[in-house]
Each structure stands twice: as structure tokens, then as C-alpha cells.
Design a binder for these strands. Structure first.
Lengths: 163, 163
DNA sequence: GAGCTGACTTAGGGATGACATAGCCAGCAC
DNA sequence: GTGCTGGCTATGTCATCCCTAAGTCAGCTC
């Protein structure tokens, strides 16, 4: 009731009615990863899957869809396709995350944590831990000065030009 | 080349071939927010939009799609639909984020930051700032003991039962 | 009571995503 | 050379997503 979850707008973003979110990079990101199957193929890549058949089987999608998604993800630079051969085997292909793809980890972690919290009665099947200390890992909003920032302390503003 | 971006598996998650990601909460989250339009309606809700026509206009989707998405998001408990009336006006409906919906903020922030970094030549149109100090805000992986955790220090493990 | 606005719904159609089944091709194993 | 496996491609069909255009309905304003 009394809780307002919307972000606080500042500067020329106020009032909201005066602008539309063109150049929105959430929208652009969703053009690169538009489908459920694209997200889940990336999940599998983080889980270490590299081969065509394994992607299809572990995501649970058909081979034609697997081929289409892998091609799109390679074309968009999220996965790198490379040939390799093990001794006594023919050349095969394998798909691995690029740096661009690997930097989507926070987005997948955020979705996983949200699903753990709201969509699974046991808090989710797996968790991330810090190898150093074994403690579970979460995502935090933190500003460049090092303060942990709650969502009620967030301002949305037009980006300052890079110095 | 030499960089391995996949997560490190521990315990019964090793080797990867022996299990499939059933009960995956990323997949479950994508059943609740399956489409681009659902993500963008949530973005608008964070931007403070509350009314049907404004959602349609600011997301850039048609009215039938807007109606379908809003209904799904309300049914799934991400938005709350409430009647309200301003003085001298008839009763209208407005849509606001529930706590469940509001907790998707990190996922949207992660997608936005990734898009800012990789898909926009000027680093994105808007940024989040800490109201206290004005510094830009980012997402960080951090463990329960308070350590900042790099992606190369992450272990994936079966969740320990809650104590 | 006629018009307008906000919030939808209905109807029809194109593009995309998904499936299952089947086929193709390269290169070992035999 | 025949068969088998991995990594795809081709075909056809169905479901979903989204569009435009139009219609509905309630309750103000005039």
C-alpha cells in the first residue's frame, strides 16, 4: 500500500511524462537475448557445456532450435565457436563464452536469485559460494564510493558524459 | 583463448554430464517474464509508469499486447492493480510493483549495465546514482562474509538445506 | 443526451519460435 | 567399403507474439 517501488528521477528525467526511453539498453540487450532458449543456452555455457548435442539435451530444446540459437549467439559475439580435436578423434566444434557473453553472469545470477526466492519452495536447487570462505554469494548494489545502496536510495539520472 | 569463463562445479555437481538442471530457477523466472514486452513493462513500472495507455505508449507496444502482459504480470503477482480516483474524475485503474516485482530490479539493472557496456557507443543514456553521495551505482557479487567475489572465485554447489 | 477519454476487447493476419521427423556429411572403427 | 557417431540442415506443422483496425463501455463534460 504505502510502499513506492518506483525509482526516483532526477534532473531532466523529471517529469516522467516528458521523455520516452529511447536508446534503452535493456531493450537492446533483449534484442541480443530475446528468447528463453537463448538465456538457457547461456546458462548451460556457464555450467561448462560446450557441445551441440549437450546444449540440446541439457536445455531440453530440439536440434534445429539449438542450431539457430547457437548461430545467433555466435553472430552476436556472446559465444565463440572453435574447432578442436582430441587424439584419435575427428575435428569437432565447441562453443565457449566470450568476455562479452561471460559478463552476462550478473544478469543470470539475478534471475536465479529471484527465482530461488519467489518461485521455488526450497530456495532453489543450487547456490553460488565464495571459493575462499565457502559463504553463499549474492548481488549487491554498491556505488563507486563503496557504499552499499538500497533501492530506496537510488536516483536515475541522465548519464554524465565520460570525462 | 586461455580464458575459461565457465563456473567451477563442486560436490555432486561434478562431473557436469551426470545431472540436468531441473528445477532451474532461471527457467522458472523466464516462465513468469517470458517476453521482451514483459521486461519492458517492468522497466516502465520502475520508471514510475502506472497507467494502461502510458505503458502502451512508452514501451511502444499495441494495446492488445499491453492488456495481455499487464494481466499476466498481475496474475503472477509482480504488479498490483488497484482502482483509484482523483477528485472530479471517474474511477481508474493503476498498476504498481509489488514487492515480488520490485525485487527484479537487480535483474533489470544487470541487463542495463551489460547493454550500456556492450551495445551502446556512449555507455547508455541513463545511470543509477547513490542519492547520498551522487556516485554511480553498480552490481557486485559479494559473499555473506562481506568479501567482494570475482567470477573466477565462484563455486556452484547444491544448496545446503536451510538450518 | 452527445461527445470525449481511458481502458480495454475483438477480429484478422504476418512473423517468429517451437516441435518432430528425416536426411546429410565427415571421419574414425572395422 | 559399411556402419556409427557427432553435428548439423531440411521440411512441414502448430503455437505464440505482435501488429493494425475497429468496437465496447463507463462515466465525466457540455
Amino acid at each position: 500500500m504505502g510502499i513506492e517501488h518506483a525509482l526516483h528521477m532526477t534532473g531532466s528525467l523529471e517529469p516522467r511524462g516528458a521523455w520516452t526511453a529511447e536508446r534503452c539498453t535493456i531493450a537492446k540487450a533483449l534484442e541480443v537475448i530475446p528468447t528463453r532458449s537463448a538465456f538457457l543456452i547461456l546458462r548451460e555455457a556457464f555450467y561448462g557445456t560446450t557441445r551441440f548435442d549437450d546444449f540440446a539435451a541439457r536445455v531440453g530444446i530440439s536440434e534445429p532450435v539449438t542450431a539457430a540459437r547457437l548461430r545467433e549467439l555466435v553472430d552476436n559475439g556472446l559465444l565463440h565457436r572453435e574447432d578442436y580435436r582430441e587424439p584419435g578423434q575427428r575435428t569437432r566444434q565447441r562453443y565457449r563464452l566470450t568476455e562479452k557473453g561471460a559478463e552476462l553472469l550478473p544478469a543470470l545470477v539475478a534471475l536465479m536469485h529471484w527465482g530461488d526466492r519467489w518461485l521455488d519452495d526450497r530456495g532453489g536447487p543450487v547456490e553460488l559460494r565464495h571459493r575462499g570462505c565457502g559463504e553463499p554469494v549474492g548481488l549487491e548494489l554498491r556505488c563507486a564510493a563503496g557504499h552499499a545502496v538500497g533501492s530506496e536510495e537510488l536516483d536515475l539520472a541522465r548519464r554524465r558524459p565520460a570525462s
